[in-house]
Structure formats: C-alpha cells, structure tokens
Design a protein around this nucleic acid. Structure first.
Length: 424
RNA sequence: GGAGAAGUACCCAAGUGGCUGAAGGGGCGCCCCUGCUAAGGGUGUAGGUCGCGUGAGCGGCGCGAGGGUUCAAAUCCCUCCUUCUCCGCCA
C-alpha cells in the first residue's frame, strides 16, 4: 500500500513511476476524487458529532438540575439521523478508497532497470562453471524416474497433475536440503528458525499483498476464510502484523521452512514435466524486518545468504536485477537468482529476493519506534527464498548426473544423507 | 462438538446509561534521600489514529471486532473472534 500523503502531494510523479510497471493502474485516476470526497464527508460528520457531544453534556446537566430537556432532545434526534446518513456515506467512500489503495502496486526503486518484461532484466553477476557433458545428459524427471526416487504418475492418480511423490533417497535428499539450508541460515547467518502454520486468514494474505488482487492464484479452504500459504513469507511477515517493535529489535530475521501451495492459474501447459512447477513444493524462506535507511544494504546481505547455498552446493547460477516491468506487485526492487538447469540449457529461477520497503509494513501495520517517545514509523520488510527445495533437487539431479544415470551427492549434503556419496 | 467464565491503555486492574480519556497499582520520566547493586520519599506523564490549521492548537474515533438501541454506551441488545476451565472426541 502506498502512502496516501505521498499520493496527495506528488500524484504525477508517483503515477509516472508506476507506469513503468507492467500493470494496469488506470484505477489510480480516481484517487483524487475519492480522497477529496472522503475528507469532505469526514469534516461534515465530525462537525455534527462535535455538536452532539456538546449538547449531550448540556442535556446531562439539565437532567441533573431537573430541568426539562424535551426540546433539545427532539432537535438532537434530527442531528443523530444526519450523522447516521453521513457515516454511511463515509463508510462507502472509505471502502472504495481502501480497495483502490490495495490494488495499486509498489513504486519501483530507482536502481531497478526500466523495462517492460524479462528481456529487460539486468544480469548482475554469474557464479560457477557450467558443466559440459561428455555424454547425452537427461532431464531430472527421467533420471529420477529411472532411479525410482520420484513418482509423478502415481501422484496424479492419488491427487492430480503437478503433484509428486518423493521416494527413498529422493525423499532423503529433499529432507537433507531442508536441514542443510535451515542449519546454515540459523547457525551462520543468524536467522531465528520458524515453523509456521500452512494456512492463514484473509488479513494475512492482504498484509503481504497476495490479496485482494491475486485470489485466483491461491488455494482457498472451503468452509473457512483460510488460504493455503503460497510461501512462508505470508505467515512469517504477518507474525508482527499490528505490532510496534523497538529499535533494538531491528533487524529482526527469520528463516522458515514450509510447504508452499500455488494454483498456477494462468500457467497451464508450462513446465508440465518435472519438479519445476508443482502445486505443492517445499521452500526455505528468509524474512527480514529492518530500519528504512538500511533496507537496500540488507537486500544485498539477504541475497548473499541465498547465494551462499548455491555456492556450497557448487551449482552455477546468475543473479538478475529485475526490471520495472517484471518486479511483481509488491517489490520495489528484486533480485532473482537463477540456477543452471542443463536440460533447459538455461538458468531457471530458484530464489527471488525482494525489498518491499514500507509497502507490506503499511498494509500489515508493522512499525517500530526509534525510542520510547518517538512516533512509530513503518519498518521495511524483505524476503527471499533460501532456497526453493524442489528446484534445487532438480538442479542437483541434472548437474550432478553421471553417465550411468546415477547422481553424485554434493559433498555438503553427505552428512545429511547418512554419508552416502551417490544415488544409484 | 457441548457447558461455563473472561477480553479495559506497556502490564495488572476498578468501573452496569450522562460529571470516565477512563479510579487504583505496577512500569516509565524527573527530583530528593540513602549509598553499594537493591531500597525509600516526592512529583510528573500517559497510547494510537483520522480530519482541520503554517503553527500553538482544535475536533472526531477509541474500553476484543462489527452491528443495533438511545439525545447520550466501557456500561443495554445482537453477531462474530480470541483466551481460560470442565466434559466429549482425537494425532
């Protein structure tokens, strides 16, 4: 959510910035009118309420003095009716304005390259050597099916498309990665470990920006107003919804493992095979609540924490600075980390690290005070995958495959795999 | 799922229609005393948010949330949420 005062005072500049995005912002044009109508109504109704309060005092005094107040009460009945009418008008305008504000995306940061789609994303750096195979390499779903460590077919029988069973060392590998990442972030990167609920309520989904605009992307629980989380970002960021932190709390950092659920509405036919695009996948998430003046520096730090995982796993990757057209709804700046997937002969997203500035904090009302007397200010929130587990498995299977179809296990994972060196 | 109780400011807590922005504590700020790690006395402040105003300031809202009754609601009515206790069920 954007700052209303900023919209009032610098509407044209804000609109200009927002138009660099790949989003429809025509609704924004109603802002001025709604904002003005709202303020007019507030003034009118508050004047009446002020009068009501004053006269109520007088009535109270008259009653105590045993004087007759019938005339005044009669007059106040009319005022009360007017108040009721104006309150109703105000509620309507408030609702409209609020809905509008909730559907306007974040303002891109100046360091985000201006562009219209993924073509315009900027490569910031590249790490690792892309392996050249002296034999014909296979996609991960073939390797995994041959090794009997993933079962897509039965998953579609038991549930449906875009689900998978992990089996044997496949399941072990998934679990090893979760533990490896969680341990590293907790022990080396100083995040507090969280295991969150996998369902959240509507307020939480609104707080982080999934709602109201992207309801069709989420799985909804039928008989409750709950949603399956699309990422641990939602429960973890909302941990501190409607709270005021103190200066010493910042930066507050969490790492959370969770399953993630996405309807993938609109991506029918894309990545239909393999682990890349599932309705349910595992992810380790990093979340940081920080002081506004530090947030860009903190974004670099967080991105580095995600990169560290790939470095230790010896998987080649690149980092992209996402252009204004590809930023998504909530981010002011976003780095995507992409890992090399040999079967695709390209890099694929494995982590997305964003600075939301005060956009989520304003929606979720997460603030801090510089000292006890100070006015509460909005924190800046950041998060990033560290990393998506399923895609990491895909990358390991493909990058570590041997000519005989076996998989070498990355060294850092062996302690988590009972000391095994290969999957065969 | 059934029965009961409760939700008041940073915390505890009083308050059943008007004089309550809300007693009293604790805490916190300042001052004094004492002096050794903890204690005594005095005094002060009381959150947030919205609107108007250049500003001092003025005003609205606010006692879990949302509605309602009333000239007037922390106080009465309705719905919902959460917590606690008991019973049932259960990984």
């Amino acid at each position: 959510m954007l700052d209303v005062k900023l919209l009032r005072s610098q509407f044209d500049e804000v609109k200009e910035k927002l138009s660099q995005r790949n989003e429809d912002i025509t609704a924004l044009d109603q802002f001025g009118e709604l904002d003005e109508k709202r303020r007019e109504t507030i003034q009118a109704v508050e004047e009446l309420k002020s009068r009501r309060n004053k006269v109520s005092q007088e009535i109270s005094q008259m009653k105590r003095d045993k004087k007759d107040a019938t005339d005044v009460i009669e007059e106040m009945q009319k005022v009360a009716a007017d108040i009721k009418k104006l309150d109703e008008q105000l509620r309507e305008v408030d609702e409209q304005l609020n809905h509008l504000l909730l559907t306007i995306p974040n303002i891109p940061h100046d360091s985000a390259p201006i562009g219209s789609d993924e073509e315009d994303n900027e490569e910031v750096r590249k790490w690792g050597e892309v392996r050249s195979f002296p034999f014909e390499n296979k996609p991960h779903w073939e390797l995994a099916t041959d090794l009997d460590i993933l079962d897509f077919e039965r998953a579609s029988k038991v549930t449906g498309s875009r689900f998978v069973f992990y089996k044997g060392l496949g399941a072990r590998l998934e679990r090893a990665l979760i533990n490896f990442m969680m341990d590293l972030h907790q022990d080396e990167h100083e995040y507090t470990e969280i295991l969150p609920p996998y369902m959240v309520n509507r307020d939480s989904m609104t707080g982080t920006g999934q709602l109201p605009k992207f309801e069709e992307d989420a799985f909804k629980i039928r008989e409750e107003d709950y949603f399956l989380i699309p990422t641990a970002e939602v429960p973890v960021t909302n941990l501190h919804r409607d709270e005021i932190m103190s200066m010493d709390d910042l930066p507050k950092t969490y790492t959370a493992y969770s399953a993630c659920f996405r309807s993938e509405a609109g991506s029918a036919g894309r990545d239909t095979r393999g682990l890349i695009r599932q309705h349910q996948f595992n992810k380790v998430e990093l979340v940081r609540f920080v002081k506004p003046e530090e947030s860009y520096q903190q974004l670099e730090l967080l991105t580095g924490h995600a990169e560290k995982i790939l470095q230790l796993l010896q998987l080649p990757y690149r980092v992209l600075n996402m252009c204004t057209g590809d930023l998504g709804f909530t981010a002011a700046k976003k780095y995507d980390i992409e890992v090399w997937i040999p079967s695709n002969e390209t890099y694929r997203e494995i982590s997305s690290c964003s600075n939301f500035e005060s956009f989520q904090a304003r929606r979720a009302n997460i603030r801090f005070k510089r000292d006890t007397k100070a006015k509460a200010e909005y924190v800046h929130t950041l998060n990033g995958s560290g990393l998506a587990i399923g895609r990491t498995v895909a990358a390991i299977l493909e990058n570590y495959q041997q000519e005989d179809g076996s998989i070498e296990i990355p060294e850092v994972l062996r302690p988590y795999m009972g000391g095994k060196e290969t999957i065969k």
